[in-house]
């Protein structure tokens, strides 16, 4: 009896996870793979169409556009985010007063729902009565069409996303900075290294593992861009803020192309894997 119990117990404990995994993870992944070979609008029976979804995807200008947009977002967002976070973390790592207060303030937008931030920034960015343009005009600078100029809309969203998330990365990097022993800097100072030298030659290399995490995290977050364009621009102007997720959402829930949407999802998932893998390699090699 006892033997049986100790044999069965682990499996009983694992069972809820196993069931959840089968229903919520395994089945959808398998079903998703099956869907990519079908045409299905939920209403009519699924139709096997072989590789047609993949072929259509290759010649779908909006797929490439949304890919390009996501890439543009990442190229602006990731360096801006990591750079700003690094600078703020470095400052917070100095011997200063009220550091706790500043840390808490920087972190505030992280906990607040993206919906709030998006609604707020849509107002800040408004071209006629928005705060930012009013400020620019009062400084004698020109008006910027933040959300309606195809070249600017995506960078504007990237800036907003940075504002929202940078606090998290400040905290992560600060933890990393605090783990670098003071002696290393002291020794460098004696050797006559300037502060900038110290930052580039000591801080950055020693932060490498955390930097890697930060870059990967902010890349993955960037790939899941959805609510920002959904609320602010609906993917426009000229589809310049159509993110991959928004495009998947639209194919699935505006056009009911479940097979094609699943294909897009699969390709995007593959891309996330690939980009993260490359980043891991590059950053680890670099330092």
């Amino acid at each position: 009896m006892r033997r049986f119990r100790s044999f069965a117990a682990p499996y009983a404990l694992i069972a809820p996870y196993g069931l959840h995994f089968l229903v919520i993870v395994a089945f959808p992944v398998v079903f998703s793979l099956i869907l990519t070979f079908h045409q299905w609008n939920l209403l009519s029976p699924m139709k096997w169409i072989g590789g047609v979804n993949f072929l259509n995807l290759l010649s779908d200008p909006l797929f490439w556009k949304s890919l390009w947009n996501t890439f543009r977002f990442l190229v602006i967002h990731v360096p801006l985010q990591v750079g700003t976070a690094l600078v703020l973390a470095e400052i917070l790592n100095q011997r200063l007063r009220a550091k706790g207060f500043f840390r808490a303030v920087f972190f505030l937008p992280v906990v607040i729902s993206g919906v709030v931030v998006t609604i707020l920034w849509k107002q800040l960015y408004a071209s006629e009565s928005g705060i930012i343009n009013t400020l620019l005009l009062s400084l004698g600078l020109g008006r910027v069409e933040w959300l309606t100029d195809p070249l600017i809309a995506m960078p504007a969203i990237a800036i907003m996303a940075t504002w929202k998330n940078v606090g998290l990365y400040v905290i992560l990097l600060l933890a990393g900075l605090q783990s670098i022993p003071r002696q290393v800097y002291e020794a460098a100072t004696i050797d006559g290294a300037s502060r900038l030298d110290q930052f580039l030659r000591i801080t950055v290399p020693m932060l490498n593992p955390i930097l890697l995490t930060v870059v990967i995290l902010s890349t993955i977050n960037g790939f899941s861009l959805f609510i920002e364009p959904y609320v602010m621009t609906a993917g426009g102007p000229l589809n310049s803020t159509l993110s991959m997720n928004l495009y998947i959402y639209r194919q699935a829930f505006a056009f009911y192309k479940m097979g094609y949407a699943a294909t897009l999802g699969l390709v995007l998932a593959g891309m996330i894997f690939a980009v993260v893998a490359v980043q891991r390699r590059l950053i680890e090699k670099e330092f």
Binding site: I14, P28, L35, M258, G265, L268, A269
Partner: peptide, 30 residues
């Protein structure tokens, strides 16, 4: 300690890395 523990652990790690986009549509259908 039980048979398959390492396998389950690997599965969990894999699940964590799985982008949600891949399961979104089937989950809705479900």
């Amino acid at each position: 300690r039980f048979k398959g523990r390492e396998l389950i652990f690997a599965v969990i790690l894999f699940t964590m890395m799985l982008p949600f986009q891949i399961t979104l549509i089937p989950m809705y259908v479900l």
